[in-house]
Write a protein that binds this DNA or RNA. Structure first.
Lengths: 220, 220
DNA sequence: CCAAAAGTGTTAGGGATACACCCATGT
DNA sequence: ACATGGGTGTATCCCTAACACTTTTGG
């Protein structure tokens, strides 16, 4: 699960409780029920371990190296999910830096040993989850350019400035505000709401995605 | 496994021997060995069932609906492969149409109940392989535009006309010859060989891919 | 009054597209 | 000779990228 906050892409990790990797951080996961769809299992485990629900989610890749879990042959189908920016409406743009271990998920019910970590300085992960992380990050960057799945990283209403900041964070480069605004509005994917967001400075018009269904569209 | 021949995209199917779908056509597949990599298992099964080897291959998606095999819960990781055009050097461009069931693989050793089928008129497939087929076809079309994996559909040397014909078949639209040639050559992915291919008409210069490693490149 | 983000148009350049004619060969 | 595919150059258009100033608010 990825989110973007404070100009950082963050990933959701949980602390492994048992086995040879106990104490290490890893992506949340679990076992598929015998009569359960893979997608459903991914959603179920996510909610159970983190309290997050109703996210954009898609299959990433299946990892099956014979030695990826020293205890037994385990084949894992990894999923890729996007969560809206935490506390978007309440938080100011800038925030004093925190230590990683204090980064506990702060929305929904509280869960122990769950936290958001900036992907540029992830701890060493359990199993082959380092490889999963780079695979997922590549997918995120690629899909933002040719699909509309950014909506998964945003609340229902947002300003163009927030949307642009999101793209700049994920692509790692600044974008020209006028060109960005022109292209995004011309794409016809957004509708202008009647309200504005008031903040520390000049209010900004709020927008929402007309459709929150995944589709392939040239975004940038 | 896909190939392109006679202006048709074709897929490789094998006849199911047992179980509720016996007699139906399906993609080749099998069981992963207990200490085997998934990729290695895909390659092994492919060669065992069809005689094809050394193809471009990548993971497609994992299919795991509880009822996809009525006998038991079976989770299948599907792979996507590309085979060079059959008999490219020997066959003429045009060929009288054949019946599907006579379409038996004609290179390498002979295998019973294996054949190439045009994807636009596939028979009803066993299991959930219809869904796999459309998933794989979408992947093929998408990846041709932004990667160099076409090389998997071509022999080591080929003419620009053959390359263009390949793209036209897969994309389903004609391309301007001059623009195609200009863009492909400007990409720097090909090297001109010193030889020409002689055929029914004016000889054409032969080209080869400088690198046959998969990479993301804007091709069209 | 100042700081900070929001909002807005124009221009120049490059890549994409459209288009027609001659060439080399086999039959 | 002719049919067929190979090979080449140019003009136009649209999209992209670069660029600066005014507005609105909170503090």
């Amino acid at each position: 699960v990825f989110t973007v906050d404070e100009h950082e892409i963050e990933a959701l990790l949980v602390k492994v409780r048992e086995g040879p990797y106990a104490g290490k951080w890893a992506f949340p996961g679990g076992l598929v029920g015998i009569g359960e769809e893979l997608d459903a299992a991914a959603r179920r485990e996510l909610t159970a371990q983190t309290g997050l629900g109703d996210l954009y989610i898609e299959q990433l890749r299946t990892f099956g190296s014979p030695d990826r879990d020293p205890r037994a042959r385990v084949v894992s189908t990894a999923y890729f999910a996007l969560a809206p920016r935490r506390g978007l409406r309440a938080l100011p743009r800038k925030d004093p830096s925190r230590k990683d271990d204090e980064n506990v998920a702060d929305q929904g019910p509280k869960y122990a040993d769950v936290g958001w970590f900036p992907v540029r300085r992830l701890p060493a992960l359990a199993y082959d989850h380092d490889e999963m992380a780079s695979c997922a990050l590549a997918r995120l960057r690629a899909k933002l350019e040719y699909t509309n799945i950014v909506y998964g990283l945003l609340p229902h209403e947002f300003t163009l400035g927030e949307l642009q900041e999101l793209y700049e964070t994920i692509l790692g480069r600044p974008l020209d505000r006028r060109n960005f605004r022109r292209k995004i509005l011309a794409s016809g994917l957004l509708r202008e709401l009647r309200r504005q967001r008031r903040g520390a400075h000049r209010p900004a018009m709020l927008y929402a995605f007309i459709s929150r269904e995944p589709m392939v569209v040239a975004m940038l």
